[in-house]
Amino acid sequence: MCLADDHSLMRDGLKEVLRAVPEFAVVGEASTGTEAVMLAARLRPDVLLLDIGMPGPRASETIRQITRVAPETHVLVLTMNDEPEMVHDLLEAGATGYLLKSILREELIAVIRSVTSRPPNTVVLIVSRQTAARLKSRPTHPVEPLLTEREAVLLGLVAEAMSNAQIASRLFITEATVKRHLTNIYAKLNAVSRVDALRKARAVGLLDAGRNGGRPQRYPSLPVADAAVVRPGR
């Protein structure tokens, strides 16, 4: 797993806790959001413990970038911030868990052990009772897809090695329109070529959705209503 916190003392304390567990291994550390993303991309850890008050991008954007470059990594937010809006935003961004830093050592270990074995459509919360109650009563909103339906379908045809002319013929559009769609896709995926776009789309689960004609989700994320509250914090 990896640790991301701008306080070295906090990282040292977490390492001491985690070293006591034989199956845990801390393989990397970061002190900014940007470093956390780079670390996740390079090491692809099973779990990344993330503080949300670090220098760099907003926490939600940091989590989105991590889920894009390392979709198999479980991001556990570890913070003192207990605001329902923050909890909701970071879960929607793709966090697997949201834990207060007042968590007990045994609880942290139990959460880390559980996240890799839980179904992918659940998250873990350890927050105050008041925050848990407000989250349960909050309405959820659908997540906007990263690609439009037409872009997703077009990318699926690119994956079938079709040329621009073949795609235009299949979709009854002009080649100029195909090129415009590809330009938009490259921009949204931060890609520089067809191969790069396909690689990045597969990494975040967009390609299968496009080939099946569905509307892919923007990021691997969860509505708060699906959250599993382990134990409200004190």
Results as ranks from 00 to 15, higher is better:
residue 145 P to A: 09
residue 188 K to N: 02
residue 142 P to N: 07
residue 176 A to I: 14
residue 197 A to G: 02
residue 160 E to A: 06
residue 175 E to H: 04
residue 185 I to E: 00
residue 153 V to M: 06
residue 160 E to L: 11
residue 194 R to G: 01
residue 198 L to I: 04
residue 173 I to E: 04
residue 157 L to T: 08
residue 142 P to V: 04
residue 185 I to Q: 09
residue 158 V to K: 05
residue 161 A to S: 08
residue 152 A to P: 14
residue 188 K to F: 00
residue 196 D to C: 05
residue 151 E to L: 00
residue 198 L to M: 06
residue 146 L to P: 07
residue 149 E to R: 04
residue 148 T to N: 04
residue 157 L to M: 07
residue 183 T to V: 05
residue 162 M to P: 13
residue 179 K to E: 11
residue 188 K to T: 02
residue 189 L to N: 01
residue 191 A to G: 01
residue 146 L to G: 02
residue 145 P to W: 02
residue 145 P to Q: 08
residue 195 V to K: 12
residue 174 T to H: 05
residue 184 N to F: 15
residue 163 S to C: 07
residue 158 V to P: 02
residue 141 H to M: 03
residue 191 A to L: 10
residue 169 S to W: 10
residue 182 L to D: 03
residue 166 Q to G: 01
residue 171 L to D: 14
residue 170 R to W: 10
residue 170 R to G: 05
residue 150 R to C: 00
residue 140 T to M: 00
residue 156 G to V: 00
residue 173 I to N: 00
residue 165 A to R: 15
residue 182 L to Q: 13
residue 169 S to D: 15
residue 146 L to C: 01
residue 194 R to A: 02
residue 157 L to C: 10
residue 154 L to D: 03
residue 176 A to T: 14
residue 150 R to T: 08
residue 182 L to E: 10
residue 181 H to P: 14
residue 179 K to P: 13
residue 172 F to W: 08
residue 185 I to A: 01
residue 189 L to R: 00
residue 153 V to A: 07
residue 195 V to F: 13
residue 197 A to T: 09
residue 143 V to N: 05
residue 145 P to M: 12
residue 171 L to C: 12
residue 149 E to V: 03
residue 186 Y to T: 10
residue 193 S to C: 11
residue 175 E to M: 03
residue 185 I to M: 04
residue 145 P to N: 09
residue 160 E to K: 12
residue 140 T to F: 01
residue 198 L to E: 00
